[in-house]
């Protein structure tokens, strides 16, 4: 338990990582059970599952890069790309099912015009639903969110490995921190969100504050763990 300037840097890295995860969740188009029935926009599962999925893929790819280099930048980039690939693959295959199996047009109920394609949305929203599928803006937003989650996961994992030198334990610990931040953020958005164009997105400062407090408590504990008996 040696406390020096490095410890403070590790502490800051973990806190920034936790905050990235917390804010990144707000970008991911989560639809929950209604989206699974094509009655709401987004991916048809819960925030925690999506955040955990992208975060774990980010962790895995970051860990892979970490086995070849100690430089933080390629590790962060790999984490981000891994998470983005996971999230994009999920959204893409989900879109195929919405388009070809369910037969629903992709439409957002939160905006009148898709901010990216400028396509009109309301004519395509089926009555009684709040949009269907994953429109372009949600797809882009989800990719940004996954990148933030991946960088966040890698940013938590990297200092942990430096501190305790045990990749397996660091990964589990990072998952623990990841879960806490992702759940807090998903409580903040009350389960469903479309992306950065959703009015609910304006609530992110609340999640920022909550994740800040939670991650500080976790990070202080994380930097205190030191290797004992060779593990």
């Amino acid at each position: 338990m040696s406390f020096d300037i490095n410890t403070i840097i590790y502490l800051l890295e973990i806190i920034v990582g936790g905050l990235l995860v917390g804010v990144g969740v707000h970008f991911v188009p989560v639809g929950g059970a209604p989206a699974a029935m094509a009655q709401a926009t987004g991916i048809g599962t819960g925030t925690v599952q999506l955040a955990a999925g992208s975060g774990l893929t980010g962790l895995l790819s970051a860990g892979l890069m970490m086995s070849v280099t100690d430089n933080i930048w390629p590790i962060l980039a790999t984490g981000a790309v891994g998470a983005m690939i996971m999230m994009d693959a999920t959204m893409l295959t989900g879109s195929w099912i919405y388009a070809y199996a369910v037969g629903a047009p992709f439409a957002s109920a939160k905006v009148n015009y898709d901010p990216i394609t400028k396509f009109s949305q309301p004519p395509y929203v089926a009555p009684g639903t709040v949009g269907q599928g994953i429109p372009t803006v949600c797809y882009v937003s989800g990719t940004i969110g996954a990148a933030m989650g991946g960088i966040g996961g890698a940013l938590i994992y990297y200092p942990l490995v430096q501190i305790n030198g045990n990749p397996a334990m660091s990964a589990v610990f990072a998952v623990g921190i990841f879960m806490v931040d992702a759940v807090l953020a998903s409580w903040n958005i009350q389960g469903t969100i479309e992306g950065f164009h959703d009015p609910k997105f304006k609530k992110w400062p609340k999640a920022f504050k909550s994740c800040l407090v939670a991650t500080i408590i976790l990070a202080v504990v994380a930097v205190l763990i030191t290797p004992i008996g060779g593990v």
């Binding site: 925030t47 925690v48 589990v172 623990g176 879960m179 806490v180 389960g191 504990v221």
Partner: peptide
């Protein structure tokens, strides 16, 4: 809680992992 019951269970175990290691 608006996000489904599983989220709170995962939160509990996430906190548990950190706490038990520490």
């Amino acid at each position: 809680i608006g996000t489904g019951v599983p989220s709170i269970g995962m939160l509990a175990l996430g906190m548990g992992v950190v706490a038990s290691l520490f």
